[in-house]
Amino acid sequence: MEVKNRPNYLLIFIALAVFTLVETLVSYVQQEAVKLPTLIVLAVVKVLLVLLYFMHLKFDSKVFGYLFMAGCVLSIPLILVLMIVMPMIV
């Protein structure tokens, strides 16, 4: 697809690379209260950058985004079953 006002893909790539480096360094931090939220936020930001800009979801038909989200929603029963079953096993 052709995108008007194309984003700076090089800048997005640099952001992804820097976030990967930061994630790696944060993984050595001992305080879980700092480490866990930082790693989750960085991973979510990286995923969104790839989805929205590299995969053009920001500029493309919303239907494609709904299809992607449908996959996440369809997985909710799996997560619920796991949450129910896990206390029985642990």
């Binding site: 239907v63 299809l67 996959g71 997985s75």
Partner: peptide, 26 residues
Amino acid sequence: LGIWVFLGGEVVFFISLILLIAFTRL
């Protein structure tokens, strides 16, 4: 559209695999 439908299915597939890892760790 077909590729996105396929990727939607792949999301379910990989989330189930991620749950496998999470389950093992927990």
